[in-house]
Design a protein around this nucleic acid. Structure first.
Lengths: 258, 258
DNA sequence: TTGCTCCTCACGTCACGTGAGGTGGC
DNA sequence: TTGCTCCTCACGTCACGTGAGGTGGC
């Protein structure tokens, strides 16, 4: 008779694994010696060897239990067939995953952020770098763009990004943009009823071909897996702004949708 | 300000995941409203969006924590590089695994057993099927062969299998084998000192070109991952036999090693 | 006496999912 | 009042690995 250690070694596994198979009912508990030691016969070893083999083929323990029920070759064949299909799916998924990673690694900067946004940020920095106030403008715009990228559906963001790139390609537009950005920032200390508020809103309207996302602008709130343009987020963003800035964006949105 | 539900939805995840990120310190706990509700600002959303994205790229939460430490683009690039290498390894492993499964599925029978043994069993059944006592002989031999396959190192078993196949290819040898097997079985009720015991041992010696595994025959008990020819197993197998059969195999082993 | 094997709990793994039981907000 | 969201535990996942604490066998 074999001890659990001899059994495990003969089958190329561990005593812990054998006890685990007992615990889940995959291998019957054998009889005990007087001192409490388990004692196994060679049939237990054959059973264990089959368990191990099927485990290494990738079956789960419940699947092994089913496949070792007597005369269950058909069942085993079925499980193995599904397993092959599974592996093919996994191989495809791995390859796509790897290709995505390689694409990300191909970028020079902003690896933690989606590609469309990274491209935009790169273009933004390049377009605005020469300006005296470039760094400030970049910081403010980057946060807004990242917010949009995180909450707006991808196709929507792609459209926004394309428009933004067009603006960045024109030095005159960039200059206007920087000026508008600084005027907008300066609204922080202004009264919401100041005529400057409406003036900045009008200037923004000349620069941006599309309005920011609004509640009735969201196509389908529950479509797709990813994030979706979100009213609450936009409201929360507005809350971080000064009253005059909030009013300015409200005017901008209202006019853009008209 | 955003509730945890709004935050999670905007980032395309669940409230449970967000709370989990709090629990592991990946996302700081925000302030609470009077009623105990968590309230988030847009910066939390940006952080969460980055966490999600890196998670979907395959980083573990600890890796994400490191990669989001400020200015850790180098670290992130490093982790992503390792990840690509990992994925390549996994793809190879999956492919090999799948090929093994396909090979197993290509067999007609005995899927739960290693290929070398399955081939042997098939040949055994074919070679012995026509015999009047074929079924009994197959049952006895199959158990012994499976035991050997489970405990003897693969190359050793391959050698045994090749010899066995040679025997099976010769109808005269097969007939002798069946006769010897029946004589061996009949030893069960015999006295160990009966001359028939030695006669059967001699007959076995004529049939088997190689002795069974013995303690001093094991090349390296700790080599390799798989099972290894095991003294305890062999002893345990002998224990299942009648005394005269044990003595017969002892004689056989002794003579074969001389 | 020392070293090895055996025994039985029982926690840990990874990133959450899924109730369980209870309380505010529209 | 009903339905939805929020809250805090706490167990479950998969196949064991890894001590923790204690006892026989050479």
């Amino acid at each position: 008779m074999l001890t659990i250690g001899e059994l495990a070694k003969a089958a190329g596994t561990t005593t812990r694994a054998v006890r685990h198979y007992h615990a889940v009912g995959l291998l019957p508990e054998p009889s005990r010696r007087a001192n409490g030691y388990r004692e196994y016969d060679v049939r237990a070893l054959l059973r264990l060897a089959r368990i191990r083999r099927l485990g290494q083929l990738g079956l789960s323990l419940p699947e092994i239990r089913d496949a070792l029920g007597d005369g269950a070759e058909t069942e085993l064949r079925e499980v193995l067939g599904e397993l092959v299909a599974d592996l093919e799916r996994q191989e495809r998924a791995l390859r796509e995953h790897r290709e995505r990673l390689v694409a990300v690694l191909g970028r020079e900067t902003d690896l933690a952020v989606p590609a469309a946004l990274a491209d935009l940020l790169t273009a933004l920095r390049r377009g605005v770098a020469h300006s005296e106030f470039g760094a400030e403008v970049v910081a403010r715009e980057a946060e807004l763009l990242e917010l949009l990228a995180a909450t707006v559906p991808p196709e929507r963001f792609a459209a926004l990004a394309a428009a933004y790139q067009t603006t960045l390609a024109d030095p005159a537009m960039v200059a206007s943009g920087i000026a508008a950005s600084r005027r907008f920032e300066a609204l922080a200390g202004t009264d919401p009823d100041d005529p400057e508020v409406a003036a900045v809103a009008r200037e923004l309207l000349d620069l941006a071909p599309e309005p920011p996302p609004a509640a009735d602008d969201v196509v389908d709130p529950d479509a797709g897996i990813g994030p979706v343009g979100d009213d609450a987020v936009w409201a929360s963003y507005l809350d971080t702004l000064a009253p005059a800035q909030q009013r300015c964006l409200a005017l901008f949105t209202e006019w853009a949708q008209a």
